[in-house]
């Protein structure tokens, strides 16, 4: 290996291994300054490699130019826009034909949370149920950030979005204070499809992400592999672009986001301890979209964090302890 990063720093291990591998996106993509999605997709495709067909439904991924514009492409592997609604189905067709022809091709989807949890959920669920052989990655920036930061079903309770705004209220009800429902837990739904592999990940924990990518690529050769990556959005969540990793890290340290993986044979396993989390306010105060929260709303969110943590822990215990 020609790479000379310090081997005693564990973060350098990834660089030493894959630093020479080609970044399979164009050098210039139109992601926002400090875009976590751009970071994620560049690492992911580098790891998955060129024997890949990439599907990116409408959202930030193609929005920053990965499928290109008027004759130019942003990707060095075959790439296409599915519809927002049919990513898993269309990619399944591609993969099946290569399998029929006896060619080993990785079918990779990088989809937003809106296109996966809302309008694209039917095709996602159908493909998972059929065990279509693909790696389906969801970039969860908790809303429709590409089209102007509208709410999705993955938007968390209390968050400001352009369709769950903060307002003075009207005669019919309370003042509007952000989203009034909790987020849909898409990765847990995928666990209930008994996918070959399900994992949650964060770009703040790159070694964990890379390890999970390896397992997901392997699982995608025999079944449906699903990786759900929490992806802070500097523009939509309202924090300075340089704070991206810090926000991602705080999400995990407070248990707002938990990192785990699941296979049908091994069950669910945390890849990072969820004991002794920081208070959720450490996460909430890091960004503008939660600035308006009342003490009651913060209490609700903290309660949900604890509830979610216990809920997933029970999955984990049933798999290993029980």
């Amino acid at each position: 290996c020609s790479k000379g990063a310090l081997t005693y720093v564990t973060t350098a291990n990834i660089y030493n291994e894959v630093g020479d591998w080609e970044d399979l996106f164009a050098p210039g993509l139109a992601g926002c300054q400090g875009c976590n999605t751009e970071l994620l997709m560049r690492h992911t495709l580098r790891r998955v490699g060129p024997d890949t067909v990439l599907a990116t439904p409408p959202g930030c991924v193609p929005g920053m130019g990965s499928v290109g514009f008027n004759g130019t492409t942003g990707t060095k592997v075959p790439v296409f826009h599915p519809l927002l609604t049919n990513t898993a189905a269309m990619l399944a067709g591609v993969k099946r034909q290569f399998k029929r022809m006896g060619r080993d091709v990785t079918a990779l989807a990088i989809a937003g949370d809106g296109g996966a949890s809302d309008v694209g959920f039917q095709s996602l669920s159908g493909a998972a149920e059929r065990g279509e052989q693909m790696l389906f990655m969801v970039v969860d920036n908790e809303g429709y950030m590409n089209t102007g930061m509208q709410r999705s079903s993955c938007t968390p309770y209390g968050a400001w979005t352009s369709t769950t705004p903060i307002g003075a209220g009207c005669s019919a009800g309370q003042p509007a204070q952000g989203k009034t429902q909790d987020a849909k837990n898409l990765p847990l739904l995928m666990v209930n499809h008994r996918c070959a592999y399900v994992a949650t990940a964060s770009t703040a924990y790159m070694e964990d992400l890379y390890a999970k990518l390896d397992r997901a690529i392997e699982a995608s050769k025999t079944g449906f592999a699903y990786v759900h990556v929490y992806s802070p959005c500097t523009t939509g969540w309202r924090f300075p672009s340089d704070q991206n990793m810090e926000v991602a890290r705080k999400a995990v340290e407070t248990n707002f986001v938990m990192l785990w993986e699941f296979t049908p044979s091994e069950g669910l396993r945390f890849s990072r301890s969820v004991d002794d989390p920081l208070p959720v306010t450490d996460y909430l105060k890091a960004m503008g979209r939660f600035r308006h929260l009342s003490p009651e709303q913060i209490e609700h969110i903290q309660g949900k964090v604890v509830e979610n943590s216990k809920f997933i822990q029970r999955f984990s215990e049933q798999a290993h302890g029980g």
Binding site: A5, L6, A12, Y15, N16, D23, P27, G31, L39
Partner: peptide
Amino acid sequence: CVKCAVCWLYCPVQCVEE
């Protein structure tokens, strides 16, 4: 700079050169 590669790891456009 100790070449720990953290900047490379987190650079969204992957513009870090060794």
